[in-house]
Design a protein around this nucleic acid. Structure first.
Lengths: 138, 138
DNA sequence: CAACGGATTAGAATCGTTCTAATTTTGGAA
DNA sequence: TTCCAAAATTAGAACGATTCTAATCCGTTG
């Protein structure tokens, strides 16, 4: 199988988003989207790339995470000030946040039900509803 | 009215938390808790103190916000990576987050109903559930 | 295959926050 | 009151995450 074909799905998504399928973006996409859904920080991804002998600068990791987020391939999650996480699962779902070690886990999508949402003030439009269940393990 | 009496309620709360009622803590508490509920960052509070001719260092503002949070007088909110907000309303409620300008507003407490919460994995205990309704004004 | 513009990069810069070590203030004991 | 130990404050340095800069590189299109 050629690389052309092997990476065809992600290359298509990049093109759709107006992003050139560069060596770095393809490698980072491979690392993030293979296997199951993940919650990853810039530093974590950069370390993984290094471990996989993919040479990418930290600046490019940041650029790529933001571009993928804008393209709808990732979703940014804010649970603690000072560090951003990116979720490879962009479908509508919520999170457990483990206060002890700061890691995130998905909540099975039907296990949280938000009934009755308020109307935003001043004619604002809801763009997303985030539910974070903060938990502690003792 | 003497200052003793004027500041009696906040002084009592500080003492309950094992915090000495210093000039700085009393002044910051005055600024934060007078008027209605607020969502304030360290920098905002420091600017307000300066504007009110209260001399407090930024380090003390940070210390005070964290101590008040631990004492249950404030609640920390994480909505955007890189900046912490502190909510003077510690009762159970949720927030609108205005993506345009980054400000927060309370949701009337009964306007969001989270029915059916999941059981956390691994015997973890829920410490809090945060709902953030992200909105955009166009 | 030339060349235009987008992408990557190292390193500097910036931002919010925390730390450090010295000084000041507080509250209680004598 | 005065004194002391502990707590609190402070300026400034340090820090970690992120963004910026401006030079170089590489993809795409013609």
């Amino acid at each position: 199988m050629t690389d052309q074909k092997r990476y065809a799905p992600i290359i298509g998504k990049l093109r759709d988003a107006g992003l050139r399928p560069t060596r770095q973006r393809i490698a980072l996409a491979e690392l993030m989207f293979r296997g199951e859904d993940r919650h990853i920080s810039a530093e974590m991804l950069h370390n993984e790339a290094t471990a996989a002998r993919v040479s990418v600068s930290l600046a490019t990791v940041y650029n790529t995470l933001h571009q993928f987020t804008q393209a709808g391939l990732l979703r940014e999650i804010a649970v603690e000030a000072g560090r951003s996480y990116f979720d490879t699962n962009t479908s509508d779902h919520h999170h457990f946040y483990f206060e002890n070690d700061g890691h995130l886990e998905d909540v099975a999508s039907n296990d949280v039900v938000v009934s009755s949402l308020p109307t935003p003030p001043g004619g604002a439009k809801i763009s997303r509803v985030d539910v974070v269940i903060r938990v502690r393990e003792d």
